[in-house]
Design a protein around this nucleic acid. Structure first.
Length: 173
DNA sequence: CTGGTGATGCAC
DNA sequence: TGCATCACCAGG
C-alpha cells in the first residue's frame, strides 16, 4: 500500500517557521486566507492586526519582557494567548526571530467574527499559551488561498497609536 | 451606550 | 499593597 506517504498530497500541512520569521505587517497580510485548524474547524483567516515589537505603544511587548509577554520575545510561530477584560481570550501568532518581539492578532475567520468568539469557537484556553502553530496538532495554521484584495484600516479598540494602519481584512471577489 | 470581569504591571 | 489599564462581548 501507500506506506511512504503518511498523508495524501494537499493535506493541511502547517505553514513553516520561516513564514513567521518576518515582520508583523508582512506576516499579518500573508496570514489572510490561510486556514486556522483546530476543534474540527479549518476556516480561512479573514481579519488580523499587526503589533510591532518596537515603537508600538499598543503592543503588549512595548514595556519589555514579562512573564506574560515572554513568548512574544522568545518564539516564532507560536501562540500568544491572553485574557482581556477579565472575560475573553485573544489569539496571537508570534513572529520575527527569537530575541525580536512582534506578533499578529487573529481577530476573525470566515465563519467566526471577533477575537473573543474566535477563541471560544476553537476551544482555545490559556493552556494554549506557547503552542507551536507550525506543528500538526490541536491548533495550527495551514495554507489556504489568498484573498482577492486586502482592506487596510486602523486597529480596533486601542487607545495608543490608534491612527496606525495595521489592521488587515481579507476580501474575496 | 453600559456593565461585567480579572490578570497584569507599575506606582507607592 | 493598591489600582488604572485593557487588542471584548452581550444586552438595553
Amino acid at each position: 500500500m501507500e506506506q511512504s506517504l503518511p498523508r495524501a498530497p494537499g493535506a493541511d500541512d502547517p505553514l513553516p517557521r520561516s513564514f513567521y520569521r518576518r515582520d508583523p505587517v508582512t506576516v499579518a497580510r500573508e496570514l489572510l486566507g490561510q486556514r486556522l485548524i483546530g476543534a474540527g474547524r479549518r476556516s480561512r483567516i479573514t481579519e488580523v492586526e499587526a503589533y510591532l515589537g518596537t515603537g508600538d505603544p499598543a503592543a503588549h511587548s512595548y514595556r519589555g519582557l514579562t512573564p506574560r509577554t515572554r513568548v512574544i520575545f522568545e518564539t516564532t510561530g507560536h501562540a500568544y494567548v491572553y485574557l482581556i477584560y477579565g472575560m475573553h481570550l485573544c489569539l496571537n501568532v508570534t513572529c520575527e526571530p527569537p530575541g525580536t518581539p512582534g506578533c499578529v492578532l487573529i481577530r476573525s475567520v470566515e465563519d467566526v467574527t471577533g477575537p473573543g468568539r474566535l477563541t471560544k469557537a476553537y476551544g482555545i484556553t490559556r493552556d494554549h499559551y506557547g503552542t507551536d502553530l507550525t506543528q500538526t496538532g490541536p491548533l495550527y495554521i495551514a495554507p489556504g488561498p489568498a484573498p482577492a484584495r486586502i482592506e487596510v484600516t486602523p486597529r480596533i479598540g486601542i487607545r495608543h497609536a490608534a491612527d496606525r494602519l495595521l489592521r488587515f481584512v481579507g476580501l474575496d471577489a
